[in-house]
Design a protein around this nucleic acid. Structure first.
Lengths: 248, 248
DNA sequence: CGCCGGTTTGAGTCCATTCAAGAGGAGTGG
DNA sequence: CCACTCCTCTTGAATGGACTCAAACCGGCG
């Protein structure tokens, strides 16, 4: 398996999905000093309430953002794939408002926030692109509000799968129709506001209706069109093909 | 009633809740060219899917962001008060991923996004503060995911009220314990992922338990402590007192 | 082999919805 | 001033979707 040329390569590639970068801006981002850190499965990367002085860019593995309600119930509001800046939000905010958690073995590049700010001051175009990138995370979170607030159980799970698949595609991950499914049924419940028991029943329904197969940590989509219809999935909010319609 | 000295005054005041601005940075923001626009109650300010070349800052009145699910159900993911930049997200994104809607009579200052970008290139400190401001909107949306995903009906409604009250306080709006309640019960349902019928029942419960009184468009909090406990409300995510703990 | 985390199944309960109808209040026009 | 309309709020009864609480099953792994 070929190594990516640079730890931040996938990050630049992702940004170019929604913003055009000049060669100088690409270089400026790739030149950001960063250190590689590894996290074992199920390990906290950032804790809510802590002050954060940098951000992680995922090089491999999966991570999620979550908060814990007063009852102790966990709510996941984003799942991240290779190339995502998982924690820029927390670094720019005065303190972290949410947890970041590694799902499986994670390799991440850590960048000091000061270096990012300095680079942005030099390169307004790159600044705009990175700002936009953080706002796309916001757009995704808004769609999650809709998912949890206004869709029934099957649709919620199906929608989550559609998003996961689309993001893996965009990151160049899904090979031959098979995708990674890093979430347990418990975690799927925490994404969708359901219990793991009910998630299990929805999965069986989706399997019996020929929408997906899900074995172990491998997800296969059997009927993408019907899956998106069940899910009420409109991929625009992910902004993975935005370059064409881009304003400036 | 005294007039604010400048259309963007409330905006600067809000930013200073979470970021320190130099006098020059304040001036730079206040010098942004803007035009005043008015919207009647229940009027769209921005439509999902449209390309947006600027953003509105609320001078008076209330607005909300929403998306429509495939079933036709509406989900509201943010309510905005005086001083909020209601549409910076949509202006920085390639196109609007959500609607913005005026709740009542709204007066807003419209700023071209190009002017904002130009100002930010000149004033990195202001850039950082505005970036942070948009990310705080994200933090609020994350808390909404938790609210609709992981709290029961009373808590959801109570939490919404706590947020609304706290934001009005921060904007200098609630006088003598009475706050504006610009949302209909239908709209409260769209905020919380409930039906208006069920919202009505939760309101009666909250009234009978002496938590609030709600008559017409006026909300009174009768017992803030118990209300926040019922709501599972932790105000940190709003970052209205962040200056003290601020990192840089 | 025995453990352990994750998945599956079942039965009973309850929270929130649906559907429907009525009441209140504000604004409009005759 | 009244009649009329529209919108919002209120109430009731019945339904159902998702939850709870268990227990059993399964596969991987030490």
């Amino acid at each position: 398996m070929p190594q990516d040329p640079h730890p931040l390569h996938a990050f630049v590639r992702k940004i170019e999905h929604h913003s055009q970068l000049t060669a100088a801006e690409q270089d400026a981002i790739l030149s950001l000093p960063c250190s590689i850190r590894n996290f074992p499965p199920n390990r906290h990367m950032v804790r809510e309430g802590s002050a954060v002085d940098g951000c992680y860019v995922l090089m491999s593995g999966y991570a999620f953002r979550s908060k814990i309600a007063g009852t102790g119930a966990r709510q996941i509001m984003a799942v991240h794939v290779k190339g995502d800046a998982v924690d820029l939000q927390n670094a720019v905010l005065p303190w972290a408002d949410h947890d970041v958690h590694a799902l499986n073995q994670v390799e991440a590049a850590y960048i000091q926030i000061d270096a990012i700010h300095a680079m942005m001051a030099q390169h307004p175009g790159a600044a705009r692109a990175i700002w936009r990138d953080t706002l796309i995370d916001g757009a995704v979170e808004r769609e999650w509000v809709v998912n949890v607030g206004r869709r029934d159980a099957v649709a919620r799970v199906a929608h989550l799968f559609c998003e996961l698949v689309t993001r893996q595609e965009a990151a160049g991950l899904g090979r031959s129709g098979a995708y990674d499914m890093p979430l347990t049924q418990e975690a799927i419940g925490d994404c969708t506001g359901l219990t793991s028991v009910h998630v299990n029943r929805m999965l069986q329904r989706m399997r019996s209706e020929g929408l997906i197969t899900l074995r172990g940590r491998e997800l296969r989509v059997e009927d993408w069109d019907r899956l998106t219809r069940v899910a009420d999935f409109q991929p625009e909010y992910l902004f993975v093909e935005a370059n064409a319609r881009q304003v400036a």
